[in-house]
Amino acid sequence: MIIGIDSSRANKAQKTGTEWYSFFIIQELKKIGVKHQFRLYTNTLLEPALAACPENFEQRVLHWPLKYLWTQKRLSWEMLLHPPDVLFVPAHTIPIFCRAKTVVTIHDVGFAAQPQLYPFHEKLYHRASAWFAVHFADRIICPTEFTKRELIKFYHADPAKIAVIPHGVEVPKNIESTKWNRPYLLYMGRVEQKKNIMNLLEAYALVHMKHQDLRLILAGRLGFGGKECVAWVNSQGLGQSVEFTGSIIEDRKWSLYRGALALVFATLYEGFGLPLLEAQAVGCPVVTSDLPAHREVAQEAAVYVDPASPQSIAQGIERASDPGVAQNLGKLGRLNAANFTWSKTAASTLGVLESLGR
């Protein structure tokens, strides 16, 4: 069977959750997909790690002069002229025209459930892409039972088409040990409105009144509403205690997790929440929103808070900072994260792809 994969997300230099998902799925399929031929479709040459492929993998660079619409237009043209047996799209948007069976991963539908958190043009794009994918893909993968329910609720998706396959986590063998002068809380992800950063900052301000030496590090590039968050920090005189790192490399990401007093991930809506697993995998205590997807992922190894209440988030931080609680969270977190591996994710995904080739 010939399996095509949209590898454009995995090939991005700056990766967040969706891009890492795409990357690790491809890397694991290289190990287990020996019975099939794979085509990796990209708009630029593959980065070195992705380009290192076994003989049954080939790269196809589909050049496109525009910044947008590569999937809808250029990949569509390839699917009409040279279709594989099955096309796997790891992130929401499928080609408009496709002669291959199609499998798509829809990670969340926050743009439908919480539309006020998205810029207008982004909201319209995601809504249209999700609707098209739900109705025209042959199979849909989503990472949690919660996201499956949301797809049925907002898009009337056929439950029989949906496979729930959780994401995984992979910890580097060697994580740089860094000595920090001051203890710090960590947020990992884009700094944007839909991640509830303002309430996190207000919660930190409450905690900082009691613990003047405690810092907050927000590790991720600025997104929609990010500049307003920076301005608020400066207006409150917290500029010396709150750090906006911008995009970070992988080595620093894992070093930050390992050194943090706690990961604070009090977002308003998630389909999964990969930072929860990443933190747990290295024993970092987790404070997170009491959301259905977070409960599925973090299980009992987290302190759950009301994301709408800075006071609740602050209380969660105080609880996770207790040495006894932190130690227990670290232990439970490692045990929980061990259940989520990219090898399991890839094996289940391959099973879905193979089901369409029979």
Rank of each mutant, 00 (worst) to 15 (best):
L46P: 13
L46S: 09
E47N: 14
E47P: 02
E47M: 12
P48L: 13
A49E: 15
A51V: 03
A52K: 13
A52L: 13
A52F: 03
P54W: 09
E55C: 00
E55H: 13
N56S: 05
F57R: 13
E58A: 12
Q59T: 14
Q59I: 06
Q59N: 12
Q59F: 01
R60S: 00
R60F: 01
R60D: 00
V61W: 04
L62Q: 04
H63K: 13
P65H: 09
T71H: 07
K73R: 11
K73Y: 14
K73V: 15
S76W: 10
S76F: 09
S76Y: 10
E78T: 02
E78I: 00
E78Y: 05
L80R: 06
L80P: 01
H82L: 07
P83V: 07
P84A: 07
P84R: 01
D85T: 12
V86N: 13
L87W: 07
V89P: 05
V89N: 12
P90R: 06
P90M: 09
A91I: 08
A91P: 01
H92E: 09
T93A: 09
I96C: 06
C98V: 04
A100S: 15
A100M: 04
A100Q: 10
K101V: 05
V103S: 03
V103W: 07
V104R: 06
T105M: 09
T105N: 08
I106S: 11
H107T: 03
D108L: 03
D108G: 04
V109F: 00
G110P: 06
Q114H: 14
Q114M: 12
Q114Y: 09
P115N: 04
Q116G: 08
Q116W: 01
Q116E: 15
L117Q: 14
L117S: 13
P119V: 04
P119N: 10
H121G: 03
H121T: 14
K123R: 15
K123M: 05
Y125G: 05
Y125T: 02
H126M: 13
H126K: 11
R127E: 04
R127N: 11
A128E: 04
A128P: 00
S129A: 15
W131C: 07
W131F: 09
F132A: 11
F132L: 14
V134E: 00
V134I: 15
H135N: 13
F136P: 01
A137R: 03
D138I: 08
R139G: 05
R139S: 09
R139D: 00
R139V: 04
I140P: 02
C142D: 03
C142N: 06
T147F: 00
K148Y: 02
K148L: 05
K148C: 10
E150D: 14
E150K: 00
L151Q: 05
L151H: 02
I152E: 15
K153C: 00
F154L: 00
A157G: 10
A157P: 03
D158Q: 12
P159E: 11
A160I: 08
A160P: 01
K161S: 11
K161A: 13
I162E: 04
I162K: 03
V164D: 10
I165E: 11
P166D: 11
